[in-house]
Design a binder for these strands. Structure first.
Lengths: 140, 140
DNA sequence: CGGGATCCGGCTTGATACTG
DNA sequence: CAGTATCAAGCCGGATCCCG
């Protein structure tokens, strides 16, 4: 459990307590953090936007409508740190920075989109379920 | 697709503005809400826990360690409303309530787990990427 | 253009207590 | 056991200002 270099990192993934699926991505595991970066509010939108191709900062802001500079910057840093996004900064004037999905990012994007598309296809079911629920219990 | 009852619901899914992937799950779309319920902090853990089989409330609380009663209750309601979870309440004394994944919930769980397992398999890459990033830029 | 730093309001979250 | 109600704290996210 206590390797000097990466104590709670890769070791955790297949550590003793991680046999069960629901434990495999518990908050203790680093993979959970990455999952949140990818599926989070702006993370998924950003990944989706970058899937269309490389993009500059403000162009990205336009694609991911509604995101603030701060949140986009933050999201981008998290994704870059996790190796999902590559940042290409050219020290020209005015500065030009291109963002693009890494191969890893593309893989993740595909899986994420798969889940999303399935959910979209299931929306009729979801919506009717919500209706029943709301009618039965009235509020909330 | 366009029942009179749900104008901005299912219609939105394949509406004009939703051609692009990154727009398909924008905040305007109901599918995005469901996605967040499923991928959210407690949502994913709860779904994962229920994938092991039906479960009672407090048993679930033990499985999803760290969740408060309130959050679990809230999460469960959201998932039930979306048709991912079935709630079986028996009016006995003491009360006994079993939760279990619906067929839809199982499908979603499988796709979610697929993404998660891929991420876990990629953790070595992710971790080394983080190291480079942190070494280069020092702080976060 | 591409961001970092700061401030601040509000929603989310977590204890605690209470009910059936 | 299976929750709901209440309340305070904390983090998230947005707006703004500023720098390179």
């Amino acid at each position: 459990m206590e390797t000097p270099a990466a104590p709670t990192d890769a070791a955790c993934i297949e550590a003793a307590g991680c046999d069960l699926a629901y434990d495999a991505f518990a908050r203790a595991c680093p993979s959970r953090e990455t999952l949140e970066h990818v599926t989070g509010r702006w993370g998924s939108l950003t990944v989706g936007a970058l899937r269309e191709g490389p993009c500059r900062f403000n162009e990205l802001r336009r694609r991911v409508e509604g995101v603030s500079e701060k949140m986009l910057s933050q999201t981008l840093h998290a994704l870059e740190r996790d190796g999902m996004v590559h940042r290409d900064a050219q020290p020209t004037n005015p500065p030009r920075v291109d963002y693009e999905l890494t191969p890893l990012g593309v893989e993740v994007a595909n899986r994420l989109l798969s889940l999303i598309h399935f959910l979209e296809g299931s929306m009729p079911q979801v919506l009717s379920s919500r209706q029943s629920y709301d009618e039965t219990r009235g509020a909330r």
